[in-house]
């Protein structure tokens, strides 16, 4: 948690360097922008979860939490929520601001904001699962194996932008992601707490 600023800076860096590396007209800029945006959110979330349990694992705090009577899945859920509040929300606001500079269509930006909020929370949960799996092995492995799980979300995000550009039932995508999120936030804390307990065994 000490390094919550790192992922946000990474996000800003990618978004700022994007227009510098492209030498086309403005409408071409917009085409690539959204896919880059989703990928940057994904990457920032991946980096933010890198050390989410590592410190507590190494210094023995996790054992203390398991022994104490507080519910472990609840603790995990709380921790993920804090990460989202500290990293996910700022990144979503930044996504909104960056998109204002890219497109004249305000409805896209307004739609993009809740999508970023939801997807960052989903990514966070998925990568927390990955980091928990490879708790003592460094999180590159964990991120790699949970990456495929994030893929469907990326696909939905990509399709939703096309939908809103053509003005067709884009709310469905939002509801779909919300549905995914509601399942994920109830299931992931339990799986993660089970995985961590297995690690400590």
């Amino acid at each position: 948690m000490r390094s919550w600023l790192g992922p946000i800076l990474l996000f800003i860096l990618i978004m700022v360097s994007y227009p510098l590396t492209i030498e086309f007209l403005e409408q071409d800029l917009e085409k690539g922008f959204y896919s880059l945006l989703w990928i940057s959110i994904l990457l920032s979330m991946m980096f933010s979860t890198e050390d989410i349990f590592l410190e507590d694992y190494n210094d023995g705090s996790l054992e203390q939490i398991i022994i104490s009577s507080t519910s472990f899945p609840f603790m995990v859920a709380k921790k993920i929520l804090i990460y989202w509040l500290m990293i996910g929300i700022p990144i979503s606001i930044l996504s909104f601001l960056f998109s204002l500079g890219i497109t004249q269509n305000l409805s896209i930006s307004l739609f993009l904001f809740p999508m970023a909020l939801i997807s960052s929370y989903i990514f966070l949960n998925l990568f927390v699962f990955g980091t928990a799996l490879s708790l003592n092995k460094g999180s590159v492995l964990g991120a790699l194996i949970t990456m495929p799980l994030a893929l469907p979300v990326l696909i939905v995000l990509g399709k939703s932008i096309i939908a809103i550009q053509f003005g067709i039932n884009y709310l469905e995508f939002l509801l779909l992601l919300l549905g995914c999120l509601s399942i994920i936030i109830t299931v992931v804390p339990f799986i993660v707490s089970y995985v961590i307990k297995t690690h400590l065994e």
Binding site: E55, N58, D59, G60, E63, Q64, I67, S69
Partner: peptide, 15 residues
Amino acid sequence: IDISYLGHKNALKNY
């Protein structure tokens, strides 16, 4: 039962 435990790891934050 209510356990308090100290093992090899101190559960202290170094920083």
